[in-house]
Design a protein around this nucleic acid. Structure first.
Lengths: 205, 205
DNA sequence: AGAAATTTGGTAGTGACTACCATATGACTG
DNA sequence: CAGTCATATGGTAGTCACTACCAAATTTCT
């Protein structure tokens, strides 16, 4: 890695950090990109080269956490699906717990600002798609359509656990472990503790 | 309902329809709100009074479908949870099937434009929250925290089914019934056809 | 050292969105 | 029915996110 890339990483981080500081202090809406650029001592053009929208500035960290987990999963092609899914869920939560204040702040900003909430949900959705793609590759079913269907549902549930746990964990003032919550969710799912929509002919099964 | 509200509904619809037409013809990014306002023969100010952002113009219909289903569910406080969830899922799908081209177009626009995708996912998320709130009210558990947790997971799964089914259904050129897909999903969930993340001590259970 | 590739900062512009005000229009009262 | 009240409308001026483009600076390679 040459000096060029090092510097690029540095400025990228610097911009994101300064942006975060300003957002936390004055709110998302009350901070202009010019202010952020000035704080990071770069021109606005440069800022836009690193971050295509103002919202991506906020979501940088969460995005990295999710991306890391998928890419890890990608490198474990032989792993059992159910164990793999658990591992992905826990891995994401561990990554997020690396920097709890930041995660909390992200969700706070999302609550206050519509477009941040929107982009956060979009991010989560994209991650779900990536995860589903990974699952399809492993399902190796007769029917590819069915495999996609199953994978989408499976990835959706995994994501659902992550999201629910994080949202509970973010609101919790007490130091409850995210991983513990996640395992509770998994157990509840397995033991029928979660009301699921039932097909009308359930009795027959 | 006086003349005033009638007129308001009319202009609202008119604006949304004209917007949709323009978006479909020229794309979301290539259509300005001024053009939409002109097409609907109102001033831009008026347009903004009805629709706070350009994206809400696109999502009008989907929003209504989802809102209708929650409000219906709200009026069935005695219904069994599992049946209620199935009914909500099916109700949303029925509403969407009312206007398939529109739904297809919405998802197409979401694919092409980041901010539309983001706001669509946000809409879905808000619906999930509303549904979860409704579930909490019915769970009447000892522990309210636990109830919220369970409700969030439950609502998330219901939404997940809707979303997955719609996305498959939108891509399907053949006339697959959305409701049929949904019931398949429910049955798969119930029979263990969907790989779920497993807690490490699964064997014990 | 000098050429090539890339990163940077600045300028000019578009368009979404807000705040505000004057005007017009449906609604209600004597 | 006239007058007044509440609300809906359209226009103006301005802010700010974001794009396209160009010239200068900086890193890399020979």
């Amino acid at each position: 890695m040459g000096l060029r890339e090092v510097k690029r990483e540095r400025t990228r981080r610097l911009i994101a950090d300064k942006a975060f500081e300003l957002f936390s202090d004055h709110g998302f809406g009350r901070t202009t990109v010019e202010q952020i650029a000035a704080a990071a001592e770069v021109g606005p053009s440069t800022l836009y080269r690193y971050f295509p929208t103002k919202e991506t500035l906020v979501l940088e960290f969460v995005d990295e956490c999710l991306a890391e987990a998928v890419s890890w999963f990608h490198q474990q092609p032989a792993m059992d699906l159910r164990d793999g899914l658990r591992a992905v869920v826990e891995r994401v939560l561990e990554q997020l717990e690396t920097n709890p204040e930041r995660v909390r702040a992200v969700f706070e900003l999302a609550e206050q600002t519509g477009s941040v909430s929107a982009h956060l949900n979009d991010l989560i959705w994209r991650f779900r798609i990536d995860l589903a793609d990974e699952l399809v590759r492993r399902l190796r079913a007769e029917d590819p359509r069915r495999a996609e269907f199953v994978a989408a549902l499976s990835a959706g549930i995994a994501m659902n656990i992550i999201e629910t746990v994080v949202r509970v964990w973010v609101d919790a003032p007490d130091a409850v472990q995210a991983k513990t919550l996640a395992r509770q969710a998994m157990r509840l799912l397995r033991t029928g503790g979660i009301p699921l929509p039932s097909p009308p002919d359930t009795a027959v099964l």
